[in-house]
Design a protein around this nucleic acid. Structure first.
Lengths: 222, 222
DNA sequence: TACAAAATGTCGTCTACCTGACAGATTTAA
DNA sequence: TTAAATCTGTCAGGTAGACGACATTTTGTA
């Protein structure tokens, strides 16, 4: 029900290679992007489709000196420059890319793919609506708790001590995802630590001790 | 470049009837909805496609006692309940509807339609991203000015005195579109009137005298 | 034409959160 | 190992805008 941090549950990589004799990846070219390298901007020309083969991308909006992260993409995720956003590599990443026109040709030849494209677009749309819902209705604390809840669902590991959550995100990264400032996230994290709801294992990973706290309707203000 | 109030520029109605011998509307059934009637909610069951034949719909999110309008739909616009939103008739409206499954059958039979569906979804996605951009980066005044600018582009009529803009929206309606309160919109409108940038012709229609004011980067605070 | 209902204008209060500043901690490079 | 760079925590001050309250205006309808 809630938004995934991962863009889609459909592994497009698998889909494109497996279906119909693997002819789909022809026309795609591969490239390595280094950490922090910009992959595309709203002003890059040409409509292109990207498929993440490995690494991690951040898709974000930018306005003057502010940014807002729309999604983090991992292996198997897809996106298109037709949506006017920035994309940058968060780690060294391998990206496969094709021109949209080439892709559209494929769509016409193999109509069954278009069903998948429609599905992916549907997921993208659902994600953006979830983001709007957060921004329009919820305060920062709520958005942060929702973010954690989704992250747990997505990549949390149950252990005896609690749920281990390797976020691989800095405070600032989280702030950009939920639309707030670095400082506010910092405060919120430490607030949860003081409540004994979570613990820090190291800079990048949390131990969630009381996940209930995150889903309470009106969390007690300490 | 900016978001349209109208959901898409593709007249789906025309598209569905005209292309390929008009067989596309088979499977669609028609219904009249009265003003303020709810057409669908996130909890309505069944995935359905809607096409607006006449009238006006409001697609919105709701959370506790707050609402946020995602789009206003008019004749020729389309939407699907697969996106979990509310939809209500703003005027008496005629809506054509079909089950998504039936529609998917059509897609398989007539692959060229799927290109259109992909286009519509792309537009929807672009709109939501524009909304996110507004909520994440801009203050209420900016969002209101953007709203007016888009509305002018969309339905403004040039006259000797200025641009006549028949919004057919109450203050509250506008507030729900830009994510603010009724009171704030009221203040903002009167602020523009005092600046002589706009004038009220009647409750539902404005005369835009100085459209420049709306597009200034940093509008003077009166 | 009158009364109820709805829409609008305006004001003061209150608060969530941004911003800047700075100190301390951690990581990286050299 | 030391310095530079980056990341984190915390606090004080300022502000946009929500919200409630209420008066006023407009609209619908009996």
């Amino acid at each position: 029900m809630p938004a995934k941090m991962k863009l889609s549950n459909i592994d497009v990589l698998k889909l494109l290679t497996v279906s119909n004799g693997g002819s789909l990846l022809t026309g795609f070219s591969e490239r390595v992007y280094h950490k922090k390298e910009i992959i595309s901007t709203p002003y890059s020309d040409g409509d292109r489709i990207f498929v993440v083969k490995s690494g991690r991308l951040r898709v974000y909006l930018s306005c003057e000196d502010r940014e807002f992260t729309l999604a983090l993409l991992e292996a198997g995720d897809i996106f298109s420059t037709h949506v006017k956003t920035y994309a940058e590599a968060m780690d060294d990443s391998v990206i496969m890319t094709a021109d949209t026109k080439v892709f559209q040709q494929k769509l016409i030849q193999q109509p069954d793919i278009s069903i998948t494209v429609i599905k992916v677009l549907g997921i993208l749309l659902k994600n953006s609506i979830n983001i709007i819902e957060g921004l329009a209705f919820k305060d920062v604390r709520q958005r942060f708790y929702d973010f954690l809840t989704n992250a747990i669902e997505d990549r949390g590991n149950n252990t005896d001590d609690g749920i281990v959550l390797r976020l691989q995100l800095s405070t600032e990264d989280i702030a950009l995802l939920i639309g707030t400032s670095r400082q506010t996230v910092s405060t919120l994290v430490n607030e949860l630590i003081k409540c004994q709801a979570i613990k820090k294992i190291d800079r990048q990973t949390l131990l969630i001790i009381k996940p209930e706290v995150l889903t309470q309707v009106s969390p007690e203000i300490p």
